[in-house]
Design a protein around this nucleic acid. Structure first.
Lengths: 290, 290
DNA sequence: ATCCATACATGCGTTTTCGCACGAGACAGA
DNA sequence: TCTGTCTCGTGCGAAAACGCATGTATGGAT
């Protein structure tokens, strides 16, 4: 008659992940434990929640209903954990930050250095990913993002304005300077598969040579001399083996923000991190604009 | 870092009940288990949730915050359990009905008899109380109530219209018939402490003799000849030792409803019970009106 | 056809959790 | 003052839950 809440949570995990092992991984328990909890839940309810198939557990309609409500319970738990984190006043324990690989590797490392020096008791964890993590689900406490992600109910602080420009390897730069009318190859990002708009009329001949789905690979291609690349100013200036070329005049691009969930925002650790971050941004503002 | 959901539920129970034993009783576990779970939760969070005082555990602000969110989780669980109950199609297992003591004792017993005869596999449980149980929290599946309780988001079915009238012991009835102008004593309910409105002008002298806080006691007083009592028609007619007296002409009173939560309403057992109930009400409609 | 990866079932030994029994301290009523 | 009742803490043995290791079935790639 009465269900254990942890069993509801287990049903949710299994519905989400489709296999005992996946659910167990998400819950931090052995997969046999997941199997046992599911069996217990089915015994208590007196009905089957999953069909045992060769390729995993397939949820029944009833399991979906349970998962739906367990997800609501999870939301309440997330909100609780966020609020508890937001109420923390001590400068110790875990703090999770996320930003894109390139932002971290090419601009944020001094912030991390300063922060861990000033607050050695804080266990700082960095999630370097381009995925937009869900701060409501506590995947991270703070995120440094290009443009404040709308839709989410997040608090944000604008850190920097930035421009983009065109960059290329030194030999490409020399070639372009020598003959502006020669054909100029571009390497571009999959998401924006055409030659950038706003190319100066002084360089009339352009073509796309490669499309990449990954920015790191794209930079490697530009360094190797495969073509010209449009990228944020700070990246082109920071990364070795690239020079700015005048093909694409600098243009304003999306701002850089630090965002967080309003529940977590006021915590001492988040506040301290923002302080170090803002100082570093102020000191290096010129790096980002033409 | 990660909290067990059952521990959150335990914190909620302890905040609600104030003592380990009370919380344990509500959860169906030994009170030492409650103490252990609380200690574990505090260890995981690294902060105190309760102050240990001589007269019980006093929740800290943080415990109240946890309880607040755990209550939301409980609501989601309640909704789930209701929906699962509503989806049940078999005519076996538990079914919980609530109604006032007097309604059960004096009118509903044949319904219970017929129902258990027709559906012997159903474990019928009766909560005979005047308290308005919370059907959203699954304290009962169906309730037979005088007037459909508004405010609640309940589904209802009108069963009967009813009148009230005045009743008294046989000797009081004889006295009133003999001398309408003599002083007539009333016994009344605390909630309506005055002599009922609408007394016939043929009986000009009335006074309140006793006030009671309990309807069963009130009926006993009327039977013992302590005075005249206004009561629902069906009660006066059903209970022995009382006769209707013409002091108070019959007047329309609140209807009788069967109500339930819309989630639970469509379940086979609830449907079957209503069927038997409605038939019995239809057959005895005349008992309720003048 | 063979090999490998994935997914689950089962049995065993260990760890954790739980309920019970006993004792201490506070408080109210006789 | 004594007694009964309420509260909680602690120690012990039983019960439940858990992780690990092993075995089986299925499907895809070589």
């Amino acid at each position: 008659m009465d269900m254990a809440w942890d069993d509801l949570r287990t049903v949710l995990a299994l519905v989400r992940h489709g296999s005992l092992a996946g659910a167990g991984g998400a819950l931090g328990v052995n997969y046999t434990t997941v199997a046992r909890r599911i069996r217990r839940a089915e015994d208590v309810l007196g009905l089957a929640l999953f069909e045992r198939l060769a390729d995993g557990y397939t949820p029944t309609e009833m399991a979906h209903m349970i998962a739906e409500h367990a997800a609501q319970m999870e939301q309440a738990e997330d909100a609780l954990m966020r609020r508890m984190k937001g109420a923390e006043t001590q400068l110790s324990g875990p703090l999770v930050i996320t930003a894109s690989q390139l932002l971290i590797a090419n601009f944020l490392t001094p912030v991390l250095d300063q922060f861990t020096t000033r607050y050695p008791a804080v266990e700082l964890r960095i999630l370097a990913t381009n995925d937009l993590l869900d701060l409501s689900r506590r995947e991270a406490d703070l995120a440094v993002r290009i443009s404040r992600t709308p839709g989410d109910e997040l608090t944000g602080l604008r850190l920097l304005s930035q421009d983009t420009a065109s960059f290329a390897s030194p030999d490409w730069a020399a070639r372009i300077a020598q003959d502006p009318h020669a054909m100029i190859d571009w390497v571009v990002y999959d998401a924006t598969p055409d030659v950038p708009k706003g190319i100066s009329p002084d360089y009339p001949s352009t073509q796309v040579r490669f499309r990449f789905d990954d920015m790191v690979a794209l930079i490697g291609a530009a360094q190797a001399g495969l073509g010209v690349l449009r990228m944020p100013m700070f990246l082109g200036r920071t990364i070795s083996g690239l020079e700015q070329v005048p093909v694409l005049p600098p243009r304003s691009y999306s701002d850089i923000w630090v965002v967080g969930h309003p529940d977590v925002w006021p915590s001492a650790k988040a506040r301290a991190f923002r302080e170090v971050l803002v100082a570093h941004c102020k000191a290096n503002r010129a790096l980002f604009v033409a």
